[in-house]
């Protein structure tokens, strides 16, 4: 079986489990919204202030929500040791990881679909004319977050304090991604919007590096 087909089977399983329980998605969306609303109370969101601080606040909300959502990705395979059943199946380890990365990417994207319009309204920022470029930045930023987060979810799944361990491992590593995503987003919210190609390329590079690393290390990541 090809890796793509096996990953699609894992993805379908993840989506079925999540849409049946809706545990992760609901908690993630609510958490992200709470963060954005609370930040909006911290300062007067005039257009100039929002352009200055808004992109950073948006990505911090996405990052925090992501670290909350990604933790159970592998942890919930511990309940009945279902990861063992997946590891025993004649599929590559990368297919398991890829299926979970894609599922997490979809969940995060759905959360952002709710979050970004609310963010734009609360912070008086117009999305007109920048929607497609903003989607590109969000896609690359979210991909980097989910690839790295899923990998570290696999690493921390066996740990006793995994809820604490994942953010501790993940957030420092995501600092370059955060900076690149914030700068790219800020360039879109500027008075004359123009996507900063350097930071955008950095985002793409981050994704490629971590996706390649996860492919190379997947056997070790999923080993007991």
């Amino acid at each position: 079986m090809t890796t793509a087909k096996a990953a699609a089977i894992i993805l379908a399983k993840e989506l079925r489990l999540e849409f049946r329980t809706r545990e992760l998605l609901t908690a993630t969306v609510i958490f992200a919204l709470v963060v954005v609303v609370l930040f909006s109370f911290a300062f007067d969101p005039t257009a100039a202030e929002s352009r200055r601080y808004g992109p950073g606040l948006l990505w911090i909300a996405i990052l925090f929500a992501g670290s909350l959502m990604l933790n159970p990705s592998f942890a919930r395979e511990q309940n009945n040791e279902t990861l063992d059943a997946l590891r025993m199946a004649p599929i590559s380890s990368f297919a398991i990881l890829l299926g979970k990365i894609l599922a997490n990417f979809i969940f995060m994207s759905l959360a952002e679909l709710v979050l970004v319009p609310v963010f734009a309204v609360l912070y008086n920022l117009s999305l007109a004319g920048i929607v497609w470029r903003l989607i590109l930045v969000l896609v690359l930023g979210t991909l980097g977050l989910t690839v790295t987060g899923t990998v570290f979810s696999a690493v921390s799944a066996h740990a006793r304090m995994r809820e604490l361990l994942l953010p501790l491992l993940l957030l420092p590593l995501l600092t370059p991604l955060l900076i690149a995503a914030v700068e790219s987003t800020a360039s879109l919210f500027a008075e004359s919007p123009a996507l900063d190609r350097t930071w955008f390329a950095f985002l793409a590079g981050f994704d490629i590096v971590f996706l390649t690393a996860s492919w190379l290390l997947c056997d070790h990541l999923l080993a007991e």
């Binding site: 049946r20 279902t82 025993m88």
Partner: peptide, 20 residues
Amino acid sequence: VRPKHAIGLVGHSTLLYDEL
């Protein structure tokens, strides 16, 4: 035949998804 195809395990846990 490849080993992974040839092995079946019943473990301590059920290796089943409760929500499926």
